[in-house]
Design a protein around this nucleic acid. Structure first.
Lengths: 193, 193
DNA sequence: CTTTTTCTTGATTGACGAGTCAATAAAGAA
DNA sequence: TTCTTTATTGACTCGTCAATCAAGAAAAAG
């Protein structure tokens, strides 16, 4: 019973199913059939809309990065001064939604994928650059020349703590990760005085 | 022409070949046959000595962690006071050998593997705990109660910068990563005063 | 009401890969 | 020498999976 305009619906369902499947398996070693079944359609249809497994993965990756980007933008919109904007950026990285199993699995696997896929590499670089430039934008007025190096450290600590907390997804450790990065931020600001 | 006592030699060759193959592919999605061919033997022999693909991966992971551990211990042996020991630990994470393509690929993939393999998870936890306790050991005499939180931040920054630098293995960025973590160390120490 | 477009899948193909096994060969033990 | 242990592989099994395709079914267009 073909309703028209199915394409965007199917694509969205496949992207979600892909992320869930990655989360369930912990790997990119999952089959198109399982993704399609989870999304409620045949594997042939998945191929029809995406063309191949690789493109399904890349779509899932784009989606993950888009969601993260939207979260950051949302948090930034509610902050006015430089310091609270910086705090918002930091907090956005450690929200509960970012600590769901599937999201963690997706990020880890995308890092791996970036080693063999130029497009994945590109997407990840965009994420890194955006985070860096967001940080520099608000750090510069506060600490001037030190902004770049400080941003490098803060971004590194965000990624590193996310990696460490993601591994043993034990309870709510996103809390303390946030505190650690905020502490680093304060140290970077105080250093200037 | 079976010489006796081949087992350790074969195992070592397979472990090395596995890491190289992971580095070449960027993935754990590699075949036992290719590993075996790279190690100069038949795939049947690989199965004979390791029992299965999973165990080959775990052996490769153990080897990688062992090498890293040895590097740290070596660096620590040449330092006497607390501060230079801390600097040695930090530097050990960013040596050239840790930035070889295969080593980076191995680490990234082991993080992914830890999501689906209890044993891999265990090994990675050991690494994290050891790094943390090494840092605390030398931080405690310097900053007391602050040691634990500071160690968390330093370890997080080490992992995070390694992740970021490993992705775009552009030139010698291990240098600046080291500087960043050393800067954080100084900030943590100064904070105490 | 026929034609075209969109959507959908079952069946199939073609390839590949993990793990097994029987058989071979050498070295040492008895 | 004969027996046993260790090393080694080619061939094979069994399963899986990505990708293709021809065909069907429903909506929209004419």
């Amino acid at each position: 019973m073909p309703k028209l305009g199915m394409e965007p619906i199917r694509r969205a369902a496949l992207v979600k199913a892909t992320i869930d499947e990655i989360g369930a398996a912990g790997t990119l070693d999952i089959t198109v059939s399982r993704i399609a079944k989870r999304a409620g359609m045949s594997s042939a249809l998945a191929h029809h809309y995406f063309g191949g497994k690789d493109q399904i993965f890349l779509a899932a990756m784009r989606h993950t990065l888009t969601v993260y980007g939207a979260e950051v933008r949302g948090a930034l919109a509610m902050a006015d001064d430089n310091v609270s904007r910086l705090q918002a950026i930091i907090r956005a990285g450690f929200t509960n939604s970012n600590f769901r199993r599937e999201v963690i699995a997706a990020w880890l696997n995308f890092y791996v994928l970036a080693q063999s896929s130029a497009e994945a590499q590109r997407l990840l670089t965009i994420y890194q650059r955006r985070l860096h430039s967001n940080l520099v934008y608000d750090l510069r007025p506060l600490i001037g020349d030190r902004a770049d190096a400080a941003a490098e450290r803060i971004a590194g600590l965000i990624d590193g703590l996310y990696l460490r907390r993601g591994l043993d997804q034990s309870s709510e450790m996103g809390m303390d990760a946030t505190e650690h990065v905020l502490a680093l931020l304060q140290a970077e600001l105080k250093e200037h005085a």
